[in-house]
Design a protein around this nucleic acid. Structure first.
Lengths: 174, 174
DNA sequence: TCCATCATGTAACCAGTTACATGATTTC
DNA sequence: GAAATCATGTAACTGGTTACATGATGGA
């Protein structure tokens, strides 16, 4: 369901074609809800069939310009106010942590080190994103920046945690 | 794939029935990879069919005692060392943040406040878990504690972030 | 003897993934 | 004329969700 509202929401912010949406999606929501081109196009067709968006124009190369309908806006708001039926949090990375005792300490330590490294790389990428965008004062910019702030803090936290865990592993080995 | 390795990993830590596993699962891995009873049982049958685990005994009420095989242990290690093909991070909560501009400021603010509250509640639950368990020195306990530490830090971070965002929203409204 | 707990399963469905497929237009 | 970009789609598959379904055993 979530991708459906990502698409609907993007259109609510600004009308456009699937292709337009895809580009805006990639450097924003795809960071918290990855999806492929095929998925997005499929979702747009389903949204149109459900009357939540509509085609306002067909341009060259079969380009379809979409716009959100009143019903679509209402449905978006309904979703926004119902976080209760969000899919639950899932992390394979953390799942692996539970099982680190099943491998030699040296390997477990290396895994945690790789987690720290990955977090630092992501952190750097987010910092670059932060510095390269102009966070204009419009709503999309403001809340996009807020989501990015979450990413920055989450990656920093994760790197800290991983370094803490490495120390604990070393302490335990001694 | 992940649930498969959760089940395999639990059995690698300690043999037991599906029912036994389910109980150990619920207060540990289910926090980072929720699954239902049906899913777990299905996974166990598939693991047995693939020769990664085996039934060592059938007790009363059709109870099947499972044990990991050598092939299973090898496959677990293979998965542990290949974090690259983990499913990506996904968060509907953050997705919603991107779209907060589509609702009135007052409602957006309330949503962020509810995020803060939820994080604090979860944090309290994790703190209770931390204080109620005896984190013995065995591997499962050590790494379970490490995973819990992640949860504690993540929820604290999230609550902080949400409170920060509320301030930003208020500042912007003025 | 009744109830809680132990114990396992099936089937329909839905969301997301991967791979493939096609063609028009603009720019160099 | 070739290459990059614009632009959209289908189909098979897999992992996870929901709802339903059944029955044995031990203890009060």
């Amino acid at each position: 369901m979530s991708l459906r509202y990502a698409a609907l929401g993007l259109l609510a912010q600004q009308p456009g074609s699937g292709y337009d949406l895809l580009k805006r999606f990639e450097y924003s929501m795809a960071n918290v809800w990855p999806a492929t081109q095929s998925q997005l196009y499929g979702e747009l067709n389903r949204l149109a069939a459900a009357g939540l968006i509509e085609v306002t124009d067909i341009g060259p190369r079969g380009r379809k310009e979409y716009r959100v309908t009143d019903a679509g806006r209402a449905d978006l708001l309904r979703w926004m106010t119902n976080p209760a039926d969000d899919p639950p949090y899932r992390s394979a990375e953390l799942l692996r942590v539970f099982l680190l005792g099943e491998m030699p300490t040296e390997q477990a330590r290396a895994y945690v080190a790789s987690v720290a490294e990955r977090a630092e790389t992501e952190l750097a990428r987010y910092e670059q994103l932060r510095d390269s965008m102009d966070w204009t004062v419009d709503d999309a910019g403001f809340y996009g920046r807020a989501a990015l702030e979450f990413g920055l803090r989450a990656e920093a936290m994760e790197a800290d945690w991983a370094r803490w865990l490495i120390k604990e592993i070393d302490r335990r080995a001694r």
